[in-house]
Design a protein around this nucleic acid. Structure first.
Lengths: 331, 331
DNA sequence: CTGAAAGCGCTTACAG
DNA sequence: CTGAAAGCGCTTACAG
């Protein structure tokens, strides 16, 4: 590999000078010698060694992005958002799939430490919690941004108002005349799931409808569970639902499938509304009505905050992005 | 940050010794002093600086993964496969979304060069071609592995036999009695699309069915185009198709949607078969029959080959992974 | 405007 | 078994 030394020799200057034109410091360089250096760089196809640079500056211009599972259709948009912003801001991103495993999270955190990433963006509360329990934050100087609810007030977060958004979704169903509204939840330790359930409850309360545990189907945000829960509900429950509020789109899609297989039409017999607006939502038949979460923007914003953090800018601890009720065909 | 010096001081040894226990070289270290060093490392929570290490060893244990678009449901499995294997083999992966843009590819290639990644895995022929046209390969010592067809015989590739697999898919349709089989293609410069079309043609030929251009709908592998192409075909064509061979699942799903909206039942009125077996394929109604490509394994294998390349092991230039005809409900 | 030299945090031949 | 020293490829205060 060609080094700064080679360039210096070729241009007949010191490496100091090469470094100076490379970094375009204020320190001025005679325009003629600058030309010479630039030419040498081009001719020799010199690409400065980022490790040597980083070692000195104590900066890597690299950040780690921890997602739970890139296969979950929710995440690719996050990743794109982070990456696009990173690219614009001169950062590179190392992707870490934690698979909701504590062990894997810890392992990755160690690698990211050794690589001396400038910061870490967490997605999904679980990983932050794992990290916190490992005392990761107290012991480390890396900046952190969380996408979702940050249970530590010091860590900046980018989020969405899940309570309010799900309340609005349910109130829409109520306005359509629905009284028997089933909701299908996420895992009980998910703050997102907790908030979305709370919004459901508030909507019912505000409209004089009883909140009944029998209509709350406890699931885990996965397609299969949504499918099975509703299938079972149809088989065994004495209640008749006229609408389903699925707390995310994956489950909503599973639910529509279960409904259709039981001969029920969506939305004629049962209305369905989801949450997230993953790309898939508009591919299914009928197209899913849902609460649109600005997933890509969540990622972009997180990366921008990370960059501000790096430059020591003032930042707000909590950034809330707006959601939007998106009515398509399923309700 | 605590450095090797701090550890050395704390354990009352030289940094040489610390480095030796860190790297577990053959060079033996007295077990008692080793203990002392290990304790110091733990107490001080020392994480060796990978940049300093890399600078010396000229190895980063980092690889770049170039995908066209992580939002395309085909890619997440690739990414997982690469990442899982990377993690097992002690590598870290930098993700690069090229968005099929030449400019972005070049930009990323430069960054990866500066970061001195040990290797690059390319997915999707386009990026390799862009890189080749930039003379990336001649000028660089980084190892390369391609997932898909490598048009340069020197670059190891991991792939699938698209011609044969699509021929089998079409022959299955023919065995079901179909004679009027429409195929919906990928972009014409995609080697994958070319091969899949060739398989279609071979199946027809081998069974005495004419290959007719009117039944070949030129598309680009996207949901929307599949949807629109078939919608238009139904509206204007004099031909009546009894089956559709979609050259990937995304289009197949769009096609099923178009058919259903026109009141046609799948598979009763029109049979549909896709290609890839993206997760989505089993979520739609009816569940999509398709050619299962071992997407995750493609990624894993590529990373393993990359690792072998690094260790100077002998590797095979072309690795072909098996596909499987997966009959579900759509044909 | 230009350059010699120290230093970033490691690894590894060399000497003892 | 242990350590002093050179070197990986850069950046930057300091001197001229």
């Amino acid at each position: 590999m060609v080094t700064i030394k080679d360039v210096a020799k070729h241009a007949n200057v010191s490496i100091t000078t090469v470094s100076r034109v490379l970094n375009q410091t204020e320190h001025s360089v005679n325009s003629e010698t600058r030309e010479r250096v630039l030419n040498a760089i081009k001719e020799l196809r010199f690409y400065p060694n980022a490790m040597a640079r980083g070692l000195h500056l104590n900066k890597t211009k690299t950040i780690g992005l921890i997602v739970q599972d890139i296969s979950n259709p929710y995440y690719p948009s996050i990743v794109r958002g982070v990456e696009d912003a990173a690219q614009e801001l001169g950062y590179t991103v190392i992707l870490a799939n934690a698979y909701r495993s504590r062990e894997r999270t810890t392992k990755y955190l160690n690698v990211l430490r050794e690589k001396r990433v400038d910061g870490i963006i967490f997605t999904g509360g679980g990983a932050v919690k794992d990290a916190a329990e490992d005392n990761f934050f107290e012991r480390n100087p890396v900046s952190t941004v969380v996408i979702g609810k940050s249970f530590n007030a010091k860590i900046p977060s980018v989020q969405v108002n899940n309570v309010q958004a799900s309340r609005e979704a349910c109130e829409h169903l109520i306005r359509q005349g629905h009284r028997q509204i089933v909701t299908v939840t996420g895992p009980e330790d998910s703050t997102t799931a907790i908030d979305r359930l709370e919004g459901y409850r508030q909507a019912l309360m505000a409209n004089g409808i009883d909140y009944r545990e029998e209509l709350v189907l406890r699931c885990n945000f996965e397609f299969d569970e949504g499918y099975k829960a509703v299938e079972k509900f149809l088989d065994v429950s004495n209640d008749k639902a006229t609408a389903v509020f699925a707390q995310n789109d994956m489950m909503a899609i599973g639910i529509m499938k279960a409904l259709q297989e039981k001969g029920l039409k969506v939305p004629e017999n049962v209305a369905v509304i989801g949450f997230d607006n993953i790309p898939l939502a508009s591919f299914v038949t009928p197209m899913l009505s849902t609460v649109a979460v600005p997933i890509y923007e969540l990622g972009r914003t997180a990366m921008r905050i990370m960059s501000d953090l790096q430059s020591g800018h003032e930042i707000s601890r909590i950034t809330t992005l707006p959601t939007k009720l998106l009515l398509r065909q399923s309700c």
